[in-house]
Deep mutational scan, measured.
Amino acid sequence: MSIQHFRVALIPFFAAFCLPVFAHPETLVKVKDAEDQLGARVGYIELDLNSGKILESFRPEERFPMMSTFKVLLCGAVLSRVDAGQEQLGRRIHYSQNDLVKYSPVTEKHLTDGMTVRELCSAAITMSDNTAANLLLTTIGGPKELTAFLHNMGDHVTRLDRWEPELNEAIPNDERDTTMPAAMATTLRKLLTGELLTLASRQQLIDWMEADKVAGPLLRSALPAGWFIADKSGASERGSRGIIAALGPDGKPSRIVVIYTTGSQATMDERNRQIAEIGASLIKHW
């Protein structure tokens, strides 16, 4: 058993032996400061991975655009179909130039040979490839079927209504393609630790998130040596930015963190910096 498999397999085991986890309101002070700095709403939640207890939250039940963070949920739905014998990670999917949409750094290189379902999930999560996400959405029946999958998990909040890139429109008060921090954190925890997916599929999902290559300026920039993080970021119109993550010290995840912001006029660099500073406060007061 690899170190990674050891880590995921023991998450339920550690729940019975973990020390009490204490919240630190200092992080919420930073979240509120980020709102002031960005001139935008910020949603935040910090969840204990083992118990599911909410440690801190700010606007946990307000809607925010999901942006590309939905791609983790999408690959969770794909893995659920794999577990049920309805899909194979090794199945190759062929597509054409007409299928390519904006920001497809991986799929645009494989027009001649296509990509496997496994490769598409990797591209969608680690590189946020939009065509990969659309191709995967097609395999499960489209955005409405992803919403149905989430409903069956008990998440009646999170919804996907459109495809890439239209889902990134982020119109104020538009509930399409949105979630709430509390709903996203709970759903992510179920995917990573619950019985919905097999152990192998849970491991695969967290491996893809751990290999994320496009979230460096966010929480990863504040991470001390030896800490673990598996994450997925997102960005969209109207100053929207977000990240969902499982992270913790000693090389294993122990908390879920979800951060969303929307409605800012700030630059992408400034949005990144504010999220990184929230992460730094979280780690300092861990």
Rank of each mutant, 00 (worst) to 15 (best):
A40G: 15
M115S: 02
P172C: 11
S254L: 08
S51G: 08
L247P: 00
P217V: 07
R92A: 07
R81A: 09
M268F: 08
V258I: 11
I171M: 12
S281C: 12
A170T: 13
V117I: 10
L55Y: 08
M180L: 06
A222C: 14
A225D: 14
E164A: 00
H24R: 08
T178D: 01
T267D: 13
Q86L: 11
K213Q: 13
S254H: 08
E119G: 09
A245G: 05
S68A: 00
G43A: 04
L19C: 15
P165G: 03
I3R: 09
S96Y: 11
I244F: 01
S221T: 11
R41F: 07
T131Y: 04
L19T: 15
L89D: 03
P217L: 06
L89I: 08
T186E: 14
E61D: 14
T267V: 07
G251N: 14
A222I: 15
T178G: 01
A183P: 05
D269C: 08
I11N: 04
G194D: 10
L282S: 01
E237R: 09
I243M: 05
A183K: 06
L55V: 08
P105L: 05
S236L: 03
I283T: 04
K284S: 12
I275V: 08
G239A: 03
P253F: 06
Q97Y: 13
M67G: 15
L10T: 12
D250N: 13
E195D: 14
E108R: 15
D174Y: 03
T179V: 01
Q97P: 14
H24A: 07
R176G: 05
T262K: 11
E169R: 07
Q4H: 12
E62V: 06
N272K: 01
E56C: 07
V214L: 11
R255C: 01
L136A: 03
L38K: 04
A245E: 00
E108V: 12
L199P: 10
L188S: 03
E46V: 10
E175G: 07
A215R: 03
S236E: 04
M66I: 11
N272M: 01
P105S: 04
V82F: 06
T198L: 07
A245V: 01
L19F: 15
A246F: 08
Q265H: 14
L89G: 04
S281T: 15
N173D: 14
L247V: 09
E61R: 14
A183E: 08
S201F: 08
S240G: 15
T112M: 15
P217N: 12
K144C: 11
E175D: 13
T179N: 00
E87M: 09
A148G: 12
L89C: 04
S201T: 05
A222K: 15
S57I: 03
E166M: 09
N134C: 01
F22C: 13
P253M: 12
D129S: 00
S2T: 13
L219P: 02
T198R: 08
Y95V: 06
M180E: 13
L73V: 09
K53T: 13
G251T: 05
P181F: 00
A16V: 15
L89E: 04
L135C: 04
Q37L: 14
F6C: 11
M153T: 11
K144I: 11
P181L: 00
A124C: 09
D174A: 03
L196P: 12
D113G: 12
K213M: 14
S254R: 09
D250A: 13
V82M: 04
M127T: 10
E145A: 14
K252L: 09
E169D: 12
L223T: 11
M180I: 11
P253H: 06
M153L: 11
G43V: 00
G39S: 10
A245S: 05
S96P: 06
R271T: 13
R255S: 01
N50K: 13
L219F: 07
L191I: 10
R41Y: 08
T267L: 07
I3G: 10
I244Y: 00
A15E: 04
E169A: 11
I244D: 00
L89R: 01
L79M: 09
Q88N: 14
G142V: 00
G263W: 09
S240W: 01
R220T: 01
Q265K: 13
R220I: 01
R41H: 10
R63C: 03
K53M: 13
F14C: 11
A9C: 15
T179I: 00
D83E: 09
V117G: 00
N173H: 12
L282K: 00
V106A: 08
R159Q: 07
L137W: 01
V82Y: 06
D250Q: 14
M268V: 08
L137S: 02
I93L: 12
R220L: 01
P65E: 06
E237V: 12
